[in-house]
Amino acid sequence: MDYLTDEWILPSRLDDFQAIGMIEVNGFIFDARKLPYELQSIAYEKGLIPYIPADRKEKADS
């Protein structure tokens, strides 16, 4: 149990939780929501982020 895990966030508030999108690559911290789609999908496949942010943005824009 930790404050920065997504287990304690309501699904409706998941997009607002800043720590969900942060990943570390080679010692650098990136916001996965601002990475290209290909890198978002790799992070999702590795379990680093709970969903692909670009997919949710496309649905919201529709």
Rank of each mutant, 00 (worst) to 15 (best):
F28L: 15
Y44W: 15
N26T: 09
I23R: 11
L4P: 00
I23W: 05
Y37L: 15
A43L: 08
E58Y: 11
E58D: 14
L35N: 03
F17D: 00
T5Y: 06
A32Q: 00
D15A: 12
I42P: 01
I42S: 03
P11R: 07
A54D: 01
Y44A: 02
D6Y: 07
Q40M: 08
G27V: 05
Y37P: 02
F28R: 14
F28K: 15
D6F: 01
W8L: 13
L48N: 07
D15Y: 06
I42H: 07
I29E: 13
A32R: 02
L39R: 09
R56F: 08
G21E: 01
G47N: 05
D61M: 07
D6H: 09
V25C: 10
D31T: 13
E7D: 12
A43C: 09
P36H: 10
I20W: 03
D2L: 13
D2M: 06
A43V: 03
I9F: 08
M1H: 03
Y44F: 15
S12M: 14
Y37S: 11
Y3M: 09
Q18T: 14
P50W: 07
Y3C: 06
Y3W: 04
E45T: 09
R33N: 04
F28V: 07
R56L: 12
Y44D: 03
E38Y: 07
G21C: 12
K57F: 14
S41E: 14
L39H: 04
Y37H: 15
Y51A: 00
S41G: 01
D2W: 01
Q40Y: 01
I52A: 02
T5F: 06
E45D: 14
A60V: 01
Y3G: 07
D6R: 01
K59Q: 09
L10T: 01
L48M: 15
P36F: 05
I49A: 02
L35K: 02
G47A: 05
E45F: 10
Y3T: 03
D15L: 13
S41D: 02
A43W: 08
I29R: 15
E58H: 08
I49R: 00
K34D: 13
V25N: 02
K57C: 06
I52N: 03
P11C: 12
Y51W: 15
I23L: 10
I49K: 01
